[in-house]
Amino acid sequence: MLRVDKASVYFSTREGRPIHALDSVSLDIGKGAFVVALGTSGCGKSTLLNAMAGFLPLSSGSITLNGHKVEAPGSERGVVFQKDTLLPWKSVAENVALGLKFAGMGRKERRERALDLLRLVGLQDFAEAAPYELSGGMRQRVGIARALAPDPAILLMDEPFGALDSMTREAMQELLVDVWARTCKQVFFITHSIEEALVLGTRVIVMSPRPGRIVARFDPTFVTAFARDRDATAIKTSPEFASLREQIRAIVHQSESCRSAAQ
């Protein structure tokens, strides 16, 4: 279980005036949970993820994973970035096996594990390809396989499908839900798409900017049906989905207009 307890982050600007990026955020991500952080840009969701990953220290508060304090990046927290960070000098299989190599696993063993993971994301035929020969969606699938390789307790995903076209994006959502259902990993996922949040999350937290904080929490159940039936269209056209979507949209808009009024 990943526990965020009253996490606050201040950045200092060039003039020395601190920016309040994250304001006392508390959040629990339990076993098998798929938590989606939703919000406009600048609402602190990436800041929260960077702190969870250990890239960014907190100004105050704490983050613990299974009781251990998070202080630096580590292989028990896998990260998938929006921009692909694959190494162009390594083949797809070697990229996936990178974390296993760092852990000191033997060549043969890590290759087998990499091929298993590539099978999981449907890229078994591209093991020897170079990353730059793949499409954007395929590269992101390699990124997911690579993050899963060291068998992390939680997967942190920073708008992983943000740069993909909408059709690829839907296919990736389906794939991710499939991987999540099969591996039972905890997932923390950032998006600014309300539909994506609702279709993927067991919990959706809505964040608002300046200072970044959680303004609403929802526990949608669509992902169970999505994992079972693989029918996103049926979910997205259901009246429950539409009503929740409008509810969240209203909250996002309200927090936006509050901010403009305050300025």
């Binding site: 630096a72 990046p73 580590g74 896998g78 960070t85 190494l87 974390g99 190599k101 760092f102």
Partner: peptide, 26 residues
């Protein structure tokens, strides 16, 4: 070297030496 690439390697468990050899040098 992009900071994302470095962070990706660190979150995959790279030590400082591994980071240098596998990411920074290439």
């Amino acid at each position: 070297v992009s900071i994302e690439r470095v962070n990706a390697a660190l979150s995959l468990g790279a030590t400082r030496f591994q980071l240098l050899r596998e990411i920074v040098l290439p």
